[in-house]
Write a protein that binds this DNA or RNA. Structure first.
Length: 400
DNA sequence: TGTTGAATCCCAC
DNA sequence: CTAACGGTGGGATTCAACA
């Protein structure tokens, strides 16, 4: 098997960088967000939400991604907080991908701000992989006005680990012969796929560095982390990874929508209202993609952050708002013991392409009517925007 | 015995 | 005054029911 060269491209503080670039592009007056302590973060009014991205000056206050905004404000009272703008991020993500594809079509979007490239055989004559990465990094900065880190190695795992080294605006290599000096010295927390829970387990085993993990018998890892995770972590620690760079994205396994409520729900009627709104979103997305689902899951989180789920499998697949809504309501009733609810969510899984009339064979006439209603509403929304039509029960909520 | 579904847990971003 | 933790999606594990 041929040796590959893989790049992992990671936008530095993506949301914040993109917000800053967009403001400059729109001629917004004021200092560049990247030069002051600033973050992109959730809902300020509700005093909820977490830090999604931080500027380099904000980083100096020990503000970390994922922490509550309140906590970040305590660390830096002058922190500038900007609301996220997902649509804008999508535009920049697409621009980045288009630029990367000028170098190779072998690009795999990994998240909105990360991508893998298999550049095997695409490296210009006389250039090292590192120099090629530097060239791409420079192009991105020149044309798109934001910086990236690029990790360079022979597989996705090592490239990803490398892009996480010193930031911003850097290219790092992590070739197999560099694992010992560049990766094994890092704390276990830094290893890909080692989250909070796994880190605790590893620490309890006395393992401090990735090198420690590599040198522990894989069977011991398996017995403490489970077979799959034990093996996976062991392979990661040795830099072993054969995953190909996948250009075609496989079909979604599920579609979900959830909300943390501004006030805890105490009354089931309020729960129903939220479920209706979530059902609209989920079912709408299923229909957009000509997909139906067999399985509906309702998720709750109470004020103590205790999560619960209830799921059911339907006899025939659906993407009808009302079927999903009514199923979700039943699940919520089964699940709920009256504890105030902080978060409600719906997830649709066991998906199937919506192309067989066969699947509708067992639909009741009522279901047919509901399907027609949904597609009417869909077409009205696509003509006049998502907000033209409200369900009666949602309107009631608006009036309250 | 092995499989399936439900509930829970963990992961990344 | 004991604060304060989003939303989406993929996968593994555990256990009970069932064949």
């Amino acid at each position: 098997m041929k040796k590959r060269i893989i790049f992992h491209v990671d936008v530095n503080s993506a949301y914040l960088s993109w917000e800053a670039v967009e403001r400059i592009k729109n001629g917004v007056k004021g200092t560049d967000l990247r030069t002051i302590p600033s973050i992109i973060g959730g809902d300020m009014e509700k005093r909820r939400g977490v830090v999604l991205a931080k500027s380099t000056p904000a980083k100096k206050y020990n503000i970390i991604t994922g922490e509550p905004i309140q906590q970040a404000l305590q660390k830096c009272p002058d922190l500038v907080i900007v609301k996220p703008n997902h649509d804008m991020y999508c535009k920049y993500s697409k621009k980045l991908l288009a630029l990367l594809r000028e170098y190779t079509q072998h690009v795999e979007p990994f998240s909105i701000d990360e991508a893998f490239m298999d550049v095997t055989g695409k490296i210009p004559c006389g250039k090292t992989p590192r120099e090629f990465a530097l060239e791409i990094k420079k192009r991105i900065k020149r044309d798109l006005k934001f910086t990236v880190n690029i990790g360079v190695s022979t597989n996705k795992l090592l490239a990803k680990m490398a892009s996480d080294f010193k930031k911003p605006d850097k290219v790092h290599t992590l070739f197999p012969e560099e694992i010992e000096t560049k990766m094994w010295i890092l704390p276990v927390e830094e290893l890909f796929m080692v989250g909070k829970s796994t880190a605790k387990t590893l620490r309890n085993l006395g393992l401090k560095t990735i090198g420690d993990v590599a040198h522990l018998d894989v069977e011991i890892l398996k017995s403490h982390l489970g077979n799959k995770m034990g093996e996976h972590i062991h392979n990661n620690a040795w830099g072993i990874n054969d995953d190909p760079v996948e250009v075609e994205r496989p079909m979604n396994k599920g579609y979900g929508n959830s909300v943390t409520l501004s006030e805890d729900i105490r009354d089931i009627e309020d729960g129903y209202r939220v479920l209706l709104s979530l059902s609209e979103t989920v079912a709408g997305r299923l229909r957009e993609n000509d997909i139906k689902c067999y399985c509906i899951t309702v998720e709750t989180k109470d004020h103590k952050f205790i999560r619960q789920t209830r799921q059911t499998t339907l006899l025939n697949a659906t993407n009808t708002t009302n079927v999903i809504f009514e199923t979700a309501c039943k699940l919520l009733e089964e699940l709920w013991d009256g504890t105030p609810i902080r978060l409600l969510g719906i997830r649709a899984t066991k998906l199937t392409e919506d192309d067989y009339e066969q699947l509708s064979l067992f639909d009741t006439p009522k279901d047919k009517k509901l399907e027609k209603l949904d597609s009417m509403l869909d077409s009205l929304r696509s003509k006049f925007g998502d907000n033209v039509i409200y369900r009666a029960s949602l309107v009631k909520e608006e009036e309250n």
